[in-house]
């Protein structure tokens, strides 16, 4: 399949249907069941019949997988009670059914503030469920390429998976720039400086830092190919003491090497990336070639 449609511009369901093998998606707790948020009504906020996430079984290159796709168009993909329970339920069912992988199409601002406390616990449950799936030997792969990025608790969940695949337009981080600007001023983080936001949270920076394992052009077919490849690479999906000690060393080394630098572009220069000021202009292939041997390894 060679699908060049933009991943970013597609809806969650369009992405999901074009990512997996044609006709293979079988939805669980679909919108026809109308399981909606029990909390949004009292705030006069709109509800969605799928609460902003589609989950189910599918095939990917013939492999049986479980898949979930968060819809950024509904409350920024944020996790409420129902949304979170659908993700947790899917990951727990994976323990019984043992698909070859669970693929999460993450697009989310994190906890849904309209369901504050329930959303926070729900994200914690998703985290535990991701790690339970990995411990049972089932790889979990995160795809990040939607306009709302992966932030807050879902930025953490993404990094609990075996591999994160991003497009260069994608953003992965913790607190949104607006939140930081509100808390500590525009001098701390100017949320309207698009280039700075991209340098700080975008796919190329994350790839260079080792926070994502693959970077692809913004095309659904490219995400599909990268997901297939990532699944094939996960021979031992569970976490080990050795792997976490390596991650500890990588994260410690990161602070030692880059902790005093003010801007991501300084980090790229320090890493030895040629022409660091023009990284944004590079196509994916020459960017990956330049990054090879320079980027930090991630597990």
């Amino acid at each position: 399949m060679n699908n060049s449609s933009s991943y970013q511009e597609a809806s969650a369901r369009e992405r999901l249907l074009q990512l997996v093998d044609a006709g293979s998606f079988e939805e669980l707790i679909g919108p026809a069941q109308r399981v909606v948020s029990p909390h949004l009504g009292q705030l006069n906020a709109p509800v969605a019949f799928d609460d902003g996430v589609a989950i189910g079984r599918a095939r990917l290159d013939g492999m049986p997988i479980f898949v979930a796709a968060q819809e950024g168009g509904f409350m920024g993909g944020a996790v409420g009670e129902v949304h979170g329970a659908k993700l947790t339920g899917l990951l727990r069912r994976a323990l019984d059914e043992r698909p070859q992988a669970v693929v999460l199409l993450i697009e989310s601002g994190g906890v849904r503030l309209h369901e504050a406390n329930a959303g926070l616990i729900a994200v914690a449950e998703v985290m535990r469920a991701v790690l339970d799936a990995r411990a049972a030997g089932i790889p979990v792969i995160a795809l990040v390429g939607g306009a709302n990025g992966a932030f807050g608790g879902m930025g953490i969940v993404a990094r609990c998976t075996n591999a994160v695949i991003m497009s260069e337009e994608a953003r992965l981080s913790m607190s949104g720039p607006e939140v930081i600007e509100t808390a500590n001023g525009v001098e701390e983080f100017d949320s309207r400086d698009r280039a700075l936001v991209w340098r700080t949270t975008g796919g190329k920076h994350r790839y260079l830092m080792g926070d994502c394992q693959a970077i692809v052009p913004d095309a659904i077919g490219a995400f599909r190919a990268a997901a297939i490849e990532a699944i094939a690479r996960q021979s031992a999906p569970e976490l080990t003491l050795q792997a976490l000690e390596q991650e500890q060393a990588m994260l410690t080394d990161r602070i030692a090497r880059y902790g005093a630098l003010p801007d991501p572009a300084d980090i790229w220069t320090e890493m030895g990336m040629p022409d660091a000021a023009n990284i944004a202009m590079l196509d994916i292939a020459p960017f990956k070639a330049a990054a090879a041997g320079r980027r930090a390894g991630g597990q």
Binding site: R206, M209, E247, G298
Partner: peptide, 26 residues
């Protein structure tokens, strides 16, 4: 809560948080 600084985001605070969670889980 998490520290709200550009430097933390630049260095990938979500990865540090996830790492802590993974260590507790291990």
């Amino acid at each position: 809560g998490q520290r709200l600084r550009h430097r933390d985001e630049m260095l990938g605070i979500n990865s540090y948080m996830a790492h802590l969670g993974k260590c507790v889980d291990l």
